[in-house]
């Protein structure tokens, strides 16, 4: 299993190259065009990161995380979610860039191969910015009443956090 996850990038890239060759797609221009779009994405999220990183660092330095972890500890322990990820869990449904900044801070602080670092990565990779997505779709559709969409989405997010913590504990704990 491990060699698949190590080789996933090269495998996908070469499979796509073969597929592109068979269809006469210009691989070079696709890769450079994509990289250009990637730079635009980076440029677009940079201001958000500049607003959020200082806030997250301030939060981390203020001693508030220990307080928050202490308050949430009984609930998080019951759900099996590591206390260090409490800010990530709270921000994940609200804002993509805030939760990216929170996850990056956890991963840098605890190390990417630590249990907490892996749990934070799996939580971010397996969930979405639910409240933002719901707001986007309902406003695009011109409806104000979102009915049961948000409770259902939040249930799924909670399940995702619990499942991520559990699977990381089983695989790497």
């Amino acid at each position: 299993m491990s060699f698949i996850s190590q080789m996933i990038g090269p495998l996908i890239a070469s499979l796509l190259c073969i597929a592109a060759l068979r269809q006469d797609t210009d691989i070079y221009s696709a890769l450079t065009e994509g990289a250009k779009k990637g730079l635009h994405v980076l440029w677009d999220i940079l201001p958000a990161l500049l607003a959020l990183f200082p806030a997250i660092y301030l939060f981390r330095a203020s001693g508030l995380p220990e307080l928050l972890e202490g308050l949430l500890a009984p609930i998080l322990a019951f759900l099996g979610i590591p206390g260090e990820t409490s800010l990530l869990v709270l921000l994940r449904p609200i804002s993509g860039s805030a939760s990216l900044a929170a996850a990056a801070e956890i991963i840098q602080q605890h190390g990417p191969d630590s249990l907490v670092g892996r749990t934070a990565a799996v939580m971010s990779g397996a969930s979405e910015t639910s409240l933002y997505v719901a707001a986007l779709y309902f406003s695009a559709a011109g409806l104000k009443d979102s009915r049961w969409a948000i409770p259902a989405a939040l249930c799924a997010d909670l399940a995702c956090f619990v499942a991520s913590s559990w699977i990381c504990r089983v695989l790497w704990g």
């Binding site: 397996a126 969930s127 259902a152 991520s164």
Partner: peptide, 16 residues
């Protein structure tokens, strides 16, 4: 982390 991400995604999709 991919196997773990798939597992969590499937759980959250099922719950959704």
């Amino acid at each position: 982390i991919i196997p773990a991400v798939w597992f969590s995604s499937l759980v959250s999709l099922a719950v959704a």
